[in-house]
Write a protein that binds this DNA or RNA. Sequence first.
DNA 1: TTGACAATAGTACGACCGTTCGTATTATTT
DNA 2: AAATAATACGAACGGTCGTACTATTGTCAA
Lengths: 198, 198
Amino acid sequence: MSKGERTRAAILDQALAMTSTDGLTGLTIGTLADRLGMSKSGLFAHFGSKEQLQAAVLERAAELFADTVVRPALAQPRGLPRVLALFENWIAWTMDTVLPGGCPIQAASIEFDDRPGPIQDLIVKQQEDMRRVVIGATRRAVEEGHLRSDLDVEQFAFEGISLCYGFTQSYRLLKNPKAEMWARTAVHGLVDRGRNRQ
Amino acid sequence: MSKGERTRAAILDQALAMTSTDGLTGLTIGTLADRLGMSKSGLFAHFGSKEQLQAAVLERAAELFADTVVRPALAQPRGLPRVLALFENWIAWTMDTVLPGGCPIQAASIEFDDRPGPIQDLIVKQQEDMRRVVIGATRRAVEEGHLRSDLDVEQFAFEGISLCYGFTQSYRLLKNPKAEMWARTAVHGLVDRGRNRQ
DNA sequence: TTGACAATAGTACGACCGTTCGTATTATTT
DNA sequence: AAATAATACGAACGGTCGTACTATTGTCAA
């Protein structure tokens, strides 16, 4: 790993933290450079434009999300355990203190839902990917016989993802101490309702 | 209504539209003034600071939300019809084209969930108000015997609100044509599960 | 050790930010 | 109609934004 790659990684780590609190637009090259003790121009040279920096931050965020939420869940046995792990890890990710300001991708998706362009395209792609992961895991649980065969997996995914999003609201903004319990209860309820009668 | 009050209202209307697409931070006095054909300083004098402008925008947004979502729902007979109307109106509000960029309060709550200050305080208050409205209507439906007496109304509100939030994601960013159906199905499912067996 | 190139710093730019000020214009009241 | 308050304007302030160029430093293979 060359020196350039190392600094680039350090930049992205710091940028990710800043983005999680200030958003992709609030992320600023000047203060980012200050916080890293380097010059604006030196930092800038790594990316070429702010937009490319934003894209890199998003990709780094998706990597982190995949490492924290998706991959550990995929390590679970297929079927219900995997679906549950997905939601549980997602809830834990929202509460994670690694990123001081919560999931940057969720913030970005509201920030950019009316600003067409390459960044919006990237966010849409990432969200669709995540949706596919949830749907895939759910469909697998149906195949395994854990969930009803007539379950609408898209509806299921919509509700599960909505709960994870709503949790952010209650936990991060409202700081409601019951938020975590509500989210877990809701997710387990969703899964239970999809179960096969036995 | 004096002239000042009239322009102030016109400013807030335009500001609300801009905020819904660009966020409270992206809202800019200069371009707002341009769009209204008036000078920066003339506009500025109406509010005294950008922060007070932001607060005024949020309050205007809450008024609009109350007029569009809450009041029509309260006009419904108490109990289940009112609860359902609340969610239906909320879904319609998200799809509304009056505000080009979706609910500004939802956007602001993610934008400011890590920026303490008077604006965050105001957003929290607004969200708590809305939560109270949902909980109140739900509790009333329990009293009327429409919903189970052992229903956890807070849990119910959390799930309903989460669904409305998740709907924004699917509808506005991902532009999924099934989003509306998913949201309606989910909300009706939530309500049905809370029903009294009869 | 030197030469080539990657990495960083330095400086400058035009544009826009929120804000202030003095002044002109328009409404409202007396 | 005169007096006063409300409203709006234009110009300017100090800052920060992203970006462009040039110069300097650091790294690492030959």
